[in-house]
Design a protein around this nucleic acid. Structure first.
Length: 594
RNA sequence: GGAGUCGUAGCUCAAUCGGUUAGAGCGCCGCCCUGUCACGGCGGAGGUUGCGGGUUCGAGCCCCGUCGACUCCGCCA
């Protein structure tokens, strides 16, 4: 029994009737009848109706007239069951009320600058007064869910023999990947720490250190532009283990996600998730993280256009590109020619698509299309047969290099699904998916060199190592995998290279010479020369995971104190100018102020 | 860096083709009200239409610029 209260505001039930109780919390609403006065008292756990009766307790009742929203109070009284007519079925405590005989106003509140728990309120206002926004049941539920998820993660990995180990926040700058947040060193003027983009190097070094099974709920930092699902600091569920292969990590991760959904929401998810290769995902869905809750798959028409009179498509087909199409079944009545024109502009401006050709077959109408006049009977037949094209449909075309054509159609696919209401119709279905066999290397045309898709320590598929040794870097597969939920990447990982020879071949493929290797990866290479065990792991975005579980549309909704779109904390004002003395200590001169 | 949407009372929004004194709901303040739970009734206060400039007899509305919020592309695994 505490100092301020005996129960929480969600606790009292008819069986407490007749007992004395003291509650503490915030005034949610007041209904003042000038005689009897009702207060909805809110705390973290719920709401209880408090009633003040002037004929029974005049002192308390008199004081209660002055209460306002968000005042903090403590009330004592006797629990009474409500009469049948006054029961509130919408309230967990709606069968009782607390008849107050003593009221203490612990702290008055100013009038709040916005109505709490109104989803239409401007987000910048909510962020400016985040401490008020956090009072709402929605934010409480989100943060409670987040706690349950992290607890489930810890319980799960503990049960699997993993150690939770913290890795440094003041870390070393890395040239690869995202832009680092830098922290100047006072003791070494001119030198900088970097905040970790991920604990990648440390978790591998923990394996060299023989810890065998590591996990961490790890803060990560990336100085890149923000998005609804991207913040400059975010949290990963980071995992690494020794003497494991891809199947071990996949099974471990499936077990973790099962545990998370079960413990946090009481939901059973499948024991095993379906799998798809990267190649298949790109070809069928135009995405490396396909939403498989609905069909709308891409269809290849390259062969059908090899002998077409339509020179644009034939030219692309002949020069190694692909012609692909997507049937937006039933979309014709939903999209006007003007809207389709806008879609084409959108595809061109946002995805550098060369165009977005289409055929619209309005119900009772003809084929309406800017390009169909160039098509012969053979192509038309192929379109009808292969795409099941019928009245009421719109077919979209992508013609480009293999993945580029698919990617544009992949975006169109999602937009079509939105228009057709397929995403809404999928409701709360959970479609987990493993995408495996990611490519090891990607060619950078501008720089005429190859780069690691995941990172340079990612293990090549054993079957592809001979190709790699021959210098054939096209289509090499990595032992790398992503776990996807409803079209959103939850996380990804890989089995790593632990042998010096293989690592040397990898660096050769990346065109990284011995000197550069030493400079960029010296300490890791040295560590690997002292008997590094085979190892691998995975990392999952905790914020995105909780966002999906909470059915929120931004990770800001599942973070207590997020930054806005431009990386500012609207509550504290960070980032801020600092005192000249602070800069002098660091021997830093600011040359330009925005 | 680029594109889009938006910016009117504390909050959410409206304001016809450019035309009288910029409205509504909620909130707030005052009075009334003894069983409400979105309590109810009456009354009231509250506006640099983001900011700057331009066109016009006249601008919340049109034009130019600028600032800010969000979404997306680039960037980021």
């Amino acid at each position: 029994m505490g100092t301020y209260r005996t129960h929480h505001c969600s606790e009292l039930r008819p069986e407490h009737a007749g007992q004395r109780a003291t509650l503490a919390g915030w005034v949610a609403t007041k209904r003042d009848h000038h005689g009897v006065i009702f207060i909805d008292l809110r705390d973290r756990d719920g709401v209880t109706q408090v009633v003040f009766r002037p004929e029974q307790n005049p002192e308390a009742a008199k004081l209660s007239h002055g209460l306002r929203s968000e005042d903090v109070i403590s009330v004592s009284g006797v629990v009474e069951t409500r009469s049948e007519a006054t029961v509130n079925p919408n309230l967990a405590t709606g069968r009782i009320e607390l008849v107050a005989d003593a009221l203490t106003i612990l702290n008055k509140s100013e009038v709040p600058p916005f109505p709490l728990d109104d989803p239409s309120v401007n987000e910048d206002l909510r962020l400016q007064y985040r401490y008020l926004d956090l009072r709402t049941p929605t934010m409480h539920a989100n943060l409670r869910l987040r706690h349950k998820v992290t607890k489930a993660v810890r319980d799960y990995f503990d049960s699997q023999g993993f150690f939770e180990i913290e890795t440094p926040i003041l870390s070393n700058p890395t040239p690869e990947g995202a832009r680092d947040f830098l922290v100047p060193s006072r003791l070494h003027p001119g030198d900088f720490y970097a905040l970790p983009q991920a604990p990648q190097q440390y978790k591998q070094l923990l394996q060299v250190g023989g810890l065998e099974k590591y996990f961490q709920i790890a803060k990560c930092f990336r100085d890149e532009d923000l998005r609804a699902d991207r913040q400059p600091e975010f949290t990963q569920i980071d995992v690494e283990a020794s003497f494991v292969g891809q199947e071990d990590i996949i099974a471990l991760c499936e077990g973790m996600l099962r545990r998370i959904w079960k413990d946090a929401q009481g939901i059973e998810i499948p024991e095993k998730f379906p799998r798809m290769t990267y190649r298949e995902a790109m070809d069928r869905y135009g995405s490396d993280k396909p939403d498989i809750r609905f069909g709308l798959e891409l269809v290849d028409l390259t062969q059908d256009f090899l002998s077409s009179d339509f020179k644009v498509f034939r030219g692309i087909a002949e020069s190694g590109g692909v012609i692909r199409a997507l049937n937006a079944k039933g979309a014709a009545p939903l999209l006007s020619r003007e809207q389709l024109k806008k879609w084409e502009e959108w595809a061109k401006s946002e995805f550098r698509a060369k165009g977005l050709a289409y055929i619209k077959w309005a119900p009772g109408g003809e084929w309406d299309s800017p390009i169909v006049k160039f098509f012969g009977e053979a192509e038309k037949k192929a379109i009808v047969e292969k795409l099941n094209f019928a009245e009421g449909d719109i077919v979209f075309f992508g013609a480009d290099k293999r993945d580029a054509a698919s990617e544009v159609l992949g975006r169109v696919r999602l937009r079509v699904a939105e228009v057709l209401g397929l995403i809404k119709a999928a409701g709360d279905r959970l479609a987990f998916l493993w995408v495996v066999d990611f490519p090891l290397l990607a060619y950078l045309p501008e720089e005429h060199c190859w780069t690691a898709v995941h990172h340079p320590f990612t293990r090549p598929n054993a079957d592809d190592v001979p190709k790699m040794e021959r210098g054939e870097y096209e289509d090499l597969r990595a032992v790398a995998y992503d776990v996807v939920l409803n079209g959103i990447e939850l996380g990804g990982g890989s089995i790593r290279i632990h042998e010096r020879d293989l690592q040397a071949k990898m660096f050769a493929a990346l065109g990284i010479g011995p000197e550069e290797q030493q400079r960029k990866f010296g300490h890791i290479l040295k560590a690997f020369s002292f008997g590094a065990p085979p190892h691998g792991g995975i990392a999952l975005g905790l914020d995105r995971l909780v966002m999906l579980m909470a059915q929120a549309d931004s990770i800001r909704e599942v973070m207590a104190f997020p930054k806005n779109n431009r990386g500012m904390d609207l509550m504290s004002g960070a980032p801020l100018e600092v005192e000249p003395k602070s800069l002098r200590d660091l021997q830093i001169a600011v040359t330009k102020r925005a």
